[in-house]
Design a protein around this nucleic acid. Sequence first.
RNA 1: GCCGCCGUGGCGAAAUUGGCAGACGUGCAGGACUUAGAAUCCUGUGCCGCGAGGCGUAGCGGUUCAAAUCCGCUCGGCGGCACCA
Length: 809
Amino acid sequence: MDFHSVEHKWQARWEKAKLNQFDKKSERKKWYVLEMFSYPSGAKLHIGHWYNYGPTDTYARFKRMQGFNVFQPMGFDAFGLPAENYAIKTGIHPKDSTEKNIATMEGQLRAMGAMFDWSAEVKTCEENYYKWTQWMFLQLYKKGLAYRKEAPVNWCPSCQTVLANEQAEGGRCERCGTEVVRKNLTQWFFKITDYAEELLSGLDALDWPEKTKNMQRNWIGRSTGCEIEFECDSGDKLRVFTPRCDTVFGVTYVVLAPEHPLARKLTTPEQAEAVEAYIAQTAKANEIERLSSTREKTGVFTGSYCTNPVNGKKIPVWLADYVLASYGTGAVMAVPAHDERDYAFATKYNLPIVKVIEKKGGETELPFTEDGIMVGSLQFDGLFGEEARAEVAAYISKLGKGGKKVNYRLRDWLVSRQRYWGAPIPVVHCPVCGDVPVPEKDLPVRLPYDVEFRPDGKSPLAKNEKFMHTVCPKCGGEAMRDPDTLDTFVCSSWYYLRYADAHNEREPFSREAVDKMLPVDVYVGGAEHACMHLLYARFFTKALRDMGYLDFDEPFRRLVHQGVILGPDGNRMSKSHGNIVSPDEYVETYGADAFRLYLMFGFSYTEGGPWNDDGIKAIARFMDRVEKLVLKVHSYKAGKDEAFGAEEKALEYAKNYAIDRVTKDTEAFSFNTALARIMEYVNALYKYDSLAEKNISLLKADVRDLVLMLAPFAPHFCEELHEAIGGKRFVFEERYPVADPKALVLDEKEYAVQVNSKIVCKAMVANGLANEEIEKLALSLPEVQEKLAGKTVKKCIVVAGRLVNLIVG
RNA sequence: GCCGCCGUGGCGAAAUUGGCAGACGUGCAGGACUUAGAAUCCUGUGCCGCGAGGCGUAGCGGUUCAAAUCCGCUCGGCGGCACCA
């Protein structure tokens, strides 16, 4: 078969017949299959694209043949840093390079032959899309879910630019190697923390990989504990958070983060110099350094004291940068006896260590951080673990000094980017009215083309006078635009909604379209998005629901992560490893179908693994075998009164078994085993075909079923075969074969016969035989009798359809 | 350090979830066809042993009539989080 002309032929016919489009008028049940959209890079499609989109398309086509009205859209996550970096390097404008890359990629994606519904294509960098991204921002703002505050950015003093975290790995600028410093800027945040609890609890009901759910749980980081107020001699009140309030009698000092609002206020004149020096020193240290747990702890005494509310003891207040300003209250009660960090710090600075928890039935070695029995804690002595904490928390609450509290690690989402290639933040800063959102009717705030995006210390947009100067929508006075753009994760947080109504000019999507097509039934993409994209998208869905634009809670019902195809050497493919395998040459030699078949057959889909050349030849051979068989059987002439005997029955079993298993495996994204079952079926057909006497009309029907069965896996190839054997419609307009349960019931099955759990022999057992009969049958076997000589049977275990085990002694 | 996942033939991998380990495919060996090779087809193929038989799912131990699968410890690999009090 000439694969290339066959691919072109069917792709053109599918296109003409609009076969790949979602049928908005159909009554069939919708099935929304979504792959994570692509970033339009200049390079060609790599194996990762093929591995994500090829097998998932097989799944989509399979659902279509099952009678679902499948919606499988594709688009481009087109804003973002790489295009801008490329522009800085080459001088080619991000818009130009991105548009060019999209055009190239569209062509390649079409050539894959996936049934993408291009009529719903979305490109996030186009006005008709980012207009609505800005609209989303405004809705969140109206709802109080967008706010502005100061936050540090990574700043490279040499490149004069803000760096994303991944560009500042190891504390150095990825481009020039200069040490990155922290700089404070006023930036926009989305209040995702408002949804922390729901984002956490919602995970339970989702059909997602457990691993991913766990990562999100971890990321959200719910911690239950107690807030406790320590009153300072100055009268200031320090609140701390602790999940271990049962250790509160062992507090020997309190520590504030250096950025804590009371840090300077609590510093006594004698300590002022040391404290100022310490604050300056920690401000210099960047985020990465500070977060390293191996770093030696440092700190400084403020000179002030506060009082432990449970025992009235006076304890010193320290500053230390091992306490994070952004978590809990930014202050911590230190219990060196029962916390490793506090222990290390107390040892270094000679602070007292007071044991208040003892190990149940054993030596208590400090620091002892497990649950234990309270000691030296007045009325609480003898209490243990959870009960102890409940009692102490209740007491603190009674004292009016705090009480139970839940904290989350999840931080609000910083969405400002000091970058050019993104959606401008639709806010005007007016000297009179302050921050004023741009009225919806004035959207989009257009991203100007003519901008100096080479870095020189300012946001690129800030240098464009024409863009920056505007009038205040509220008072009409002179005002300035926000010079920042939105994080590209904002764009990708709602694209799956836009697909449903991609050409709507009046709103981001109509309620009707979304009600009909959402939520996404199956979402397939890389596991690297487990925490960011997938969490943000869930947040958007919930926020939009609360604003009345949707009525579902979760955007993605089922989630599947494809594995990673590694280089032949077992390393991740990369230029530096020199191990990149390009799909192109394989597609050229063997065709698109063979290539995707190999990707499905050679790997466990969710595992991936090292690339290996050998398998693709085997796939080509398999396709050859199928083609030969199909054409050969098609050339046969059927006779009259054809026999239906044991051979035919065996063939029907083989077919129905294959259908049954392929259906289940494809549903489970277990493409390798699905194809193994189809191969077995092909072997069975060959075997039957080799018989002298055969039922031709049965064989013809079974071969046709083979073509249907294989169609989602090798779409062009099977269209061609389907046509060759007289198919009048597209193969994808046919129904996927359904297994006949009657054909799956065999008259007899082979059982393993065991004596004392060791296999002795095999025996054919008639279907439906009672357990006692099976036991009798087993006992009568000569191999069993031999083992049984002089012993009695104590017990007999029968596993239906599998084995019989005689326990003798 | 913490959390999670994984470890099965020469290789890619299966195993209906506790029930015949190694499906399917590669590779290898032998054979058929061929002047020869390629392609194709057939047969064999976990390991040890000529054999009967024994041993085998990283290692050790446990539960069970029965363990790749469940439990405990050890070793090795991968992913995530990483001073979150």
